[in-house]
Amino acid sequence: MTTIDQKENAEAQLNEERLIELYMEYVLEKEEEPGTVYKFTRLNKISETDFYNFFGSFDGLKKRIWERFFELTLELMEKSKEFSSFNNREKMLTLYYTFFEMLTANRSYVLFTLKNESSLAKNVRQLSGLRRELKNFTAALVRTQNEEKQSRLLKNSETVFSEAAWVQMMFLLKFWLDDNSPQFESTDVAIEKSVNTVFDLFENSPLERVVDLGKFLWKEKMS
């Protein structure tokens, strides 16, 4: 029999992270999403009210998972003593390398949740929080860089750069999903080449990197 103390202890341990963990375990073990919040909470011996204290729906939970992937990526990056001394190009490379290491650690879930959706619109919805977080991060990088520049003509657009970063993220995510190379080495190469291309575009010397990236993508497509 569950005592009052045990029940209170279980409720105290229930939090956003635990609900995310339970949800991811469910879809990986059953290879399907829960049909209803009622069935999901009953299976995990928690109340619907406890679930709704953290999320309004499974859609909200799925969106939060992607935000947490990004937040945990930033936490790992900021633990590095060297990160604060990196230039923007190095910070973006570190961001993508770390983020895709995070996704690789959760690859089975990512493959399921992205390929399980019936439409692109649903994927866009669950990735909307990730999009906001990435754009905020990249806009902050440009803002800091612009503050250091004397001439207005040398300053870059936060909006253009952050939108380019999101397009880049979607390209890399698709590339990683289809990557069959050992340890996803091809994705690492794609990250390096695409980040260098974007920064070279902003630095007005794009030709060499664009050609280099184009050759790489053509080779990967034909192999």
Rank of each mutant, 00 (worst) to 15 (best):
T2I: 14
T2W: 15
K7P: 08
N9I: 02
E11I: 15
Q13Y: 00
Q13V: 04
L14A: 07
E17S: 09
L19G: 04
E21N: 07
E21Q: 08
L22Y: 00
M24L: 04
E25M: 01
Y26W: 00
Y26D: 04
Y26R: 01
E29C: 09
K30C: 02
K30W: 15
E32A: 13
E33G: 06
E33W: 09
P34L: 01
G35Y: 04
K39I: 12
K39R: 00
F40T: 01
L43N: 08
L43E: 15
N44R: 02
N44W: 08
N44Y: 06
K45G: 10
K45N: 08
E48Y: 10
F54D: 01
F54E: 03
F55G: 09
G56H: 12
G56W: 15
F58Y: 02
D59I: 13
K62W: 09
R64A: 14
R68H: 02
F69Y: 14
F70P: 12
L72F: 09
M77C: 07
E78R: 10
E78N: 11
K79S: 09
K79D: 11
S84Q: 03
S84N: 04
S85L: 05
N87Q: 02
R89T: 05
R89H: 04
M92G: 03
T98G: 03
F99Q: 01
E101C: 15
M102V: 12
M102S: 04
M102R: 03
M102H: 06
L103T: 11
L103N: 05
T104A: 13
N106S: 05
N106A: 07
S108I: 09
V110T: 11
L111Q: 14
F112I: 06
T113Q: 07
K115H: 08
K115I: 00
N116V: 09
E117G: 00
K122P: 07
N123F: 01
V124I: 01
S128A: 11
G129R: 04
G129C: 08
L130A: 13
R131C: 03
R132E: 10
R132P: 02
R132M: 05
K135A: 06
A140L: 13
L141H: 02
V142A: 02
R143D: 03
R143Y: 12
Q145M: 10
N146H: 00
N146L: 04
N146T: 09
S151R: 14
L153Q: 11
L153V: 10
L153P: 08
L154G: 04
F161I: 00
S162H: 01
E163Y: 00
W166D: 03
W166F: 07
W166E: 03
Q168I: 00
M169E: 04
M170N: 13
L172P: 02
L173M: 05
K174T: 06
K174M: 05
F175Q: 04
P182M: 07
P182T: 11
P182D: 11
F184T: 14
F184I: 11
E185A: 14
S186D: 15
V189F: 07
V189S: 07
V189T: 06
E192A: 09
V195Y: 06
N196T: 08
N196F: 11
V198S: 11
L201Y: 14
F202Y: 10
E208M: 07
R209E: 04
R209W: 02
D212K: 00
L213M: 07
F216P: 05
L217M: 07
L217I: 08
M222R: 11
S223G: 06
